[in-house]
Write a protein that binds this DNA or RNA. Structure first.
Lengths: 357, 357
DNA sequence: AAAGTTTGCTAAAACGCTTGATCAGGTGAT
DNA sequence: ATCACCTGATCAAGCGTTTTAGCAAACTTT
């Protein structure tokens, strides 16, 4: 039963309070209500500059649209335009970290800015799900796909991904054609170290991760570069390694204490969190006895440790945004390799100027 | 729609390695390649039982599909079928908490199970963005919209939301027609308290939040119910209040210690985290000197505190899943009010059996 | 007043797909 | 032979838009 009465002519006051959940109102219905052709309605809806429509007609159409509560059917629009207004985003761990959320957020904002909607699929590392997800996106004829991982790593490009334009986000592949955007780990490592340097620390330990990753190499290199820039010789002995989580950080306490440093830069915030525990157990106070910086800026942790942790932020939002820009070809063409995104420093209270000895 | 074809008969060697990024292959092209009508192709693609197609033709079609790398155009399918295969999910804080991620995850899994894709928009609390997001979903003629918030609260229903089917997820509205699914805070509070009770604790403090919320009332009521069930009189004096974050928990330490309790149930994990710090400073050990349970099961925190925190899990995944089930009318009709989702207990090591005095 | 121009609008094709109606040819029963 | 009935496929309409070409009427020019 599709009966909707509405006074035409008099700008009926009634808001679109029909029984909803009925078939959506179509262009044709608007046209009939306004007593014009569908072409005309389309023209006014899309505000075509080239079209010549009298003010009177335009008004009738607008009234009809309002009375009926018309919404264009985006799928029909996509169909005729030949290109969809979708960008796909496949993420491997939406549920397990807030990081994915920020990538989504960034991608979304940027996509919307250009009139695209985001089609998201979350695979939680399941290969089959991933294939299905990509297939789904392909069937929706997405403009392109953002393939993102929750931590920075090398990945291989699923076959079906190649059927579309794509950009790797927070990951990369050796493959020639694979565009990618990743955080600038080296710069981040440099920044982290510089925070300490800036406060007068010279003897700085670095607790690196045990497990191989671009972050492991990059953050170490950044550390060395920062030291270098200050003319401080790199001391291999000041670099510890531990599993990159709380336990690891906690466990590294003892070794760290033997190093006789005034500051320590942790591979990530979780290690810093563990280290906090270890240090506290030893009766040491942060930042007075030892300054600590982390990496990742994992909000729940970093901002709420006691004292709040100075750290370097992983630019997930920017990663997402840059990803869609790259996909859309909006970024100035990159030289070679993945585009590197800047990791900003977030200073809180775990670092204090070193009291002159 | 996720259709998967696989090689039939001679596995023709050529993989779909065309120059991609070209116009997608259409049904018509497949039909021409196979020398049949589009109707035929459609019939074999959709495996119509009622259609009579010879094996030979079927094979020719499959070959053509494979050679051309055909993917159905989901939007065209949606158009003709009259109903889209989208479910919208608007979230207010995808970026700031992992919680939203779990809602998404749950919604996604359930939606896919029923052949729906998830259209996600993240509003970060911005009303205008929200309106746009809903408009977008309406234009894609979504089957319905899940309106979710990152913490359990009352909300009002945006006008445009009413243009579609919708269910509120993790929030609720007084409005009669508004279906909703929320966590069962009372049961959660009961469970949290029961963990302590089960270990022999009888004198249990509850550090509640200062800010009003369904959780505040529910978790308190659960606490009372659990005590009641054990015949322990409710002692108003054992209920503290603090701002529900680390600082709040930390700050509550002093007052807590005056209570002479053997266990404490915190409004949430973040307070527990702060309390850990406070307790440690007083030289108290968890769980030996005092047992602690939290609420929320915020992974980054709860699982990695020292000792790992026993807590009650907020069922975000289930919330998302139940949301789409409700939207799709798959759940047995509810009585009245929001559907309440069970909050499971997660026992870790912050509670130990009370040594008999 | 005839010719040209502008204005305001519409007809109709196209986008990629689904599906009920239809049809040509073959088979089996009468 | 005739009829009825399968079988295997095709025709064509239609989903909700956009857009180009075109048309009638009104308005300018000469």
């Amino acid at each position: 039963m599709i009966s909707q009465e509405n006074a035409s002519g008099t700008p009926s006051a009634a808001a679109p309070q029909q029984t909803r959940r009925a078939q959506p109102v179509t262009l044709r219905q608007v046209a009939e209500a306004a007593g014009v052709s569908t072409a005309t309605v389309s023209l006014v809806v899309n505000k075509k500059k080239t079209a010549r429509i009298s003010d009177e007609t335009r008004k009738r159409v607008h009234d009809a649209i309002r009375d009926l509560g018309y919404r264009p059917n985006a799928m029909a629009q996509n169909l005729v335009s030949g290109s969809s207004r979708f960008i796909g985003l496949v993420a491997d761990a939406i549920a397990t970290t807030p990081f994915a959320g920020q990538i989504i957020h960034g991608a979304q904002d940027e996509a919307w800015k250009h009139g695209y909607a985001l089609l998201i699929a979350n695979t939680e590392g399941n290969r089959e799900l991933e294939t299905d997800a990509i297939a789904m996106m392909l069937e929706y004829k997405v403009r392109g796909i953002l393939y993102s991982t929750w931590f920075h790593r090398a990945t291989d490009v699923p076959d079906s991904l190649r059927e579309s334009d794509f950009v790797l986000v927070n990951c990369f592949a050796e493959e020639p054609g694979a565009r990618a955007v990743v955080p600038d780990e080296v710069q981040g490592g440099r920044s982290a170290t510089e925070v300490l340097l800036k406060h007068g620390h010279r003897r700085i330990a670095f607790i690196n991760a045990t497990i191989p990753a671009p972050a492991k190499d990059g953050r170490l290199q950044g550390y060395r570069e920062a030291l270098d820039a200050e003319g401080i010789p790199f001391d291999e002995g000041l670099v510890l390694e531990a599993y990159p989580d709380q336990e690891g950080g906690y466990g590294a306490t003892e070794a760290l204490l033997k190093l006789d440093v005034t500051a320590v830069y942790c591979y990530n915030d979780r290690m810093a969190m563990g280290l906090y525990d270890g240090l506290r157990e030893q009766g040491l106070s942060i930042p007075d006895d030892i300054a600590v910086v982390g990496f990742d800026n994992q909000e729940v942790i970093a901002a709420h440790l006691r004292p709040p942790l100075s750290t370097v932020s992983l630019p997930h939002y920017e990663l997402g945004a840059a990803g869609v820009r790259m996909l859309l070809g909006l970024d100035e063409a990159q030289g070679h390799g993945p585009e590197k995104i800047y990791c900003p420093t977030v200073e809180r209270n775990s670092v204090r100027a070193l009291a002159p000895a």
